[in-house]
Amino acid sequence: MKKITDMKSYLEVKNELSEIKKQNTNSKILIGYGTCGIAAGAGEIYEALEESIISGEILNCELVKVGCVGYCHAEPTIELQYPDGTSVLLGNLHPHTVPEVVAGYLSNFKKKGKHVLEKNVTCDVTKV
C-alpha cells in the first residue's frame, strides 16, 4: 500500500479510488451490518443475497457490509445504490423474500412498495 506523505500524494490516492468507483458499473447492495442489524437478521439477509448472486438470480451487483443507518424500527435494512448515483433504502426485509424484492427494485427504481423507507438518502454534507 502506498504511504501518504503530503496533500499531493493524498489526492493521488483519492482520485485513483474515485476513478475506480466511477468505472464500476455495478449496483451496490449496502447491508446495515451494525450490532443492531445483525441482531435483527442482517446475517441471514446477507447469506440469502450472496446465494442469489452466486446462482445468477441477481446480476451486476456487489454486496457491502456497512454500519447502521439508524432505521432501527425497520431492521434489517439494505440500501440499493444504482450506478447513476440514485438509491433506495429498503427495510423490514425477510431472508426468504429478499432476493425477489431486490431483483424487483434493481430492474425498476421507481417501483413503490411496503419496503421502501426513503429514496436518495445519500446526503454527503462534507461535499458542500
Binding site: K14, L17, K21, L30, V64, V66, G67, G70, T122, V125
Partner: peptide, 16 residues
Amino acid sequence: RNSGLINPEDIDDYIS
C-alpha cells in the same frame, strides 16, 4: 455522514 454508506472495514471507502 458516512454511517451506513461506506464499508467501515475498508479505509479506501473512507478516503473516497
